[in-house]
C-alpha cells in the first residue's frame, strides 16, 4: 500500500455560519433542561433560544440559533431527535421564512431629546412604550439585523438596559411544521 493516498476528510470541515433550528417538543417539565443539557454536553453553542407553547397545549416550540458548519449542525439536529420528548426538528436556515425578534431598549431621555427619540422609533417601525422624565422604553420588532440597526442608533441616547427575545421563525407558504408532527 502506498503512502501517497490523500488524507481522509474529517466530518465537518466546512464554514461555520448561523443556523436556525425549529423543534417541536412535548410540553412537559424538564424538556427545556434536556435540550439545554444535550447542547452543552455535545459541545454545541446556543446563541439564542426562544420557547413557547404551540397551538396545542401539549407541545412547545423551540427556536434555536446555533453557530456551526453543516455537519456540526446536522449532528445537533440528529442528537436532538434522539430525545424522546422531541417530536420534530428542522433546520430552516435556507428555507423561505419570516424571522423576527422583539427587543425592549431603555434609554436616557431629556425634555430636549424626547421628540427625537419618538420620531426615530417611528421611522424604524418601533414605538415608545414607556416614557418618563429621564428614561424611555423603545420596543422594536423585526429581523435581527433591523433590531441591531435600531440599537446602534439608540446608543447616542445612552442605553440603560436592553433585552432581546431571540429569533422566532415561521416558514412562508402553507406548510406547517406543527402539522408534520406525527402523533
Amino acid at each position: 500500500m502506498s503512502g501517497a493516498a490523500p488524507a481522509r476528510a474529517l466530518p465537518g470541515s466546512g464554514d461555520a455560519r448561523r443556523h436556525l433550528i425549529v423543534a417541536i417538543v412535548n410540553n412537559r417539565p424538564g424538556v427545556l433542561n434536556r435540550v439545554a443539557s444535550l447542547m452543552r454536553a455535545r459541545n454545541f453553542n446556543i446563541e439564542s433560544l426562544a420557547v413557547s407553547v404551540t397551538e396545542r397545549s401539549d407541545t412547545s416550540r423551540m427556536t434555536l440559533t446555533i453557530l456551526g458548519d453543516e455537519v456540526h449542525v446536522e449532528q445537533a439536529t440528529k442528537q436532538l431527535y434522539k430525545l424522546i420528548d422531541v417530536l420534530k426538528v428542522e433546520d430552516v436556515t435556507d428555507s423561505a421564512i419570516v424571522e423576527h425578534e422583539l427587543a425592549l431598549i431603555k434609554v436616557r431621555v431629556t425634555s430636549k431629546s424626547r421628540p427625537e427619540l419618538v420620531s426615530l422609533a417611528e421611522m424604524h417601525h418601533g414605538r415608545v412604550v414607556d416614557l418618563g422624565d429621564d428614561a424611555a422604553i423603545v420596543e422594536i420588532v423585526g429581523e435581527p439585523g433591523d433590531v441591531d440597526r435600531v440599537v446602534e442608533l439608540l446608543r447616542e441616547f445612552g442605553i440603560k438596559e436592553l433585552v432581546r427575545t431571540g429569533s422566532v421563525v415561521m416558514a412562508r407558504g402553507s406548510g406547517s411544521i406543527e402539522e408534520q408532527v406525527k402523533r
Partner: peptide, 26 residues
C-alpha cells in the same frame, strides 16, 4: 487517526442511530 484511516476504502456505515453516521468518519 481518521486522516490516515483506510485511505483507499469506500466507507459504508450501517447503524440504527442516525446520529452515529457521519459523527466520527464521513
Amino acid at each position: 487517526n481518521v486522516r490516515t484511516f483506510a485511505p483507499s476504502a469506500t466507507i459504508v456505515h450501517v447503524d440504527i442511530d442516525p446520529a452515529e453516521i457521519g459523527k466520527n468518519v464521513v
